[in-house]
């Protein structure tokens, strides 16, 4: 199998199935819910089953493809970029994916999911001898409800500390309501610049939902999740105890003048996958 085919197969897996930890979290949420909220979770699990059995996209919004590439020395970025572009065109035709790349000046759809900086590709060099490619298919609905805050934020009583961060997260989720398809997966990142925290927040979405966080931060994540779930927004935003499946937190050193918080939100159809290329 060549790299293009490998990436194409990654697309197919990510568009038509969910990682086991996400499905497990949805199944776990069933125990907490009754009535309407429980019914919606059952419907979600049924949708996952149908998509996998028929190899159909789980959601019609097959998202912005976001690639996180970790390449060992000696592999050219250009070669990977070209393989991604070809695999994207093929996936759009064959899976199929919805053509989602729209040029914003004339609003013309490129019809093949490629365009200027589309798909989004982040490169990092790696000391391992394998090429590692993570793919997120990130839906537009949940992207639209993600937020950036600059602390202090007086309207939320949010100062420059973790309690301030918590306030931002709760405000973002409360504003999102059901518009981004809850139960959500939430990535929260703090740092000194807007671009950096946005990317850190996105990278958090690659974590397994049951992954251990570094010591000292996991209590904060538990608190975030508990508070989010006491908002009562629930599956589809139609009420219930499960507004989020997980909240992940990370930070970067900041500047004395800035304390920027990114609240990055993903829908329940949290489509991520990894290709290890030997």
């Amino acid at each position: 199998m060549d790299l293009e085919t490998g990436i194409f197969e990654l697309y197919r897996k990510v568009a038509t199935s969910l990682p086991p930890d996400v499905e497990e979290a949805l199944r776990g949420a069933l125990k907490r819910e009754r009535g309407r909220a429980r019914y919606f979770l059952e419907v979600i699990l049924e949708n996952i089953r149908i998509a996998r059995a028929k190899t159909l996209p789980l959601c019609q919004d097959t998202g912005i493809p976001i690639f996180f590439v970790e390449a060992p020395p000696g592999i050219s970025e250009q070669r990977i970029r070209e393989a991604i572009t070809r695999a994207t065109r093929r996936a759009t035709q064959e899976i199929p994916l919805r053509p989602n790349a729209v040029e914003p000046v004339t609003n013309t759809n490129s019809d093949d999911n490629t365009g200027r900086e589309f798909p989004i590709i982040y490169f990092r060099s790696s000391q391992k001898n394998n090429l590692r490619i993570d793919l997120l298919l990130k839906g537009g609905g949940s992207e639209n409800v993600s937020q950036i805050y600059k602390l202090p934020e007086e309207s939320l009583g949010a100062g420059r500390d973790l309690d301030g961060v918590r306030r931002c997260v709760l405000d973002a989720i409360n504003r999102a309501q059901g518009r981004g398809c809850p139960p959500y997966v939430v990535g929260v990142a703090v740092g000194g610049s807007v671009d950096q925290v946005s990317l850190l927040g996105k990278r958090l979405l690659l974590r397994r939902l049951d992954e251990e966080t570094e010591a000292g931060l996991s209590e904060f994540e538990t608190r975030l999740l508990r508070d989010i779930n006491s908002l009562g927004i629930g599956p589809f935003g139609l009420g219930g105890k499960t507004t989020a499946l997980a909240a992940h937190f990370d930070y970067a050193h900041r500047h004395p003048a800035t304390y920027i918080v990114a609240v990055t939100i993903s829908c329940w159809a949290h489509r991520r996958g990894r290709l290890i290329w030997r």
């Binding site: 919606f40 419907v43 979600i44 049924e46 949708n47 149908i50 998509a51 028929k54 159909l56 996209p57 789980l58 959601c59 019609q60 839906g139 059901g178 398809c181 589809f236 935003g237 139609l238 829908c267 329940w268 159809a269």
Partner: peptide, 9 residues
């Protein structure tokens, strides 16, 4: 309100 994200179903 229909079923958010449940396109396959």
């Amino acid at each position: 309100h229909t079923l958010s994200g449940c396109a396959a179903l």
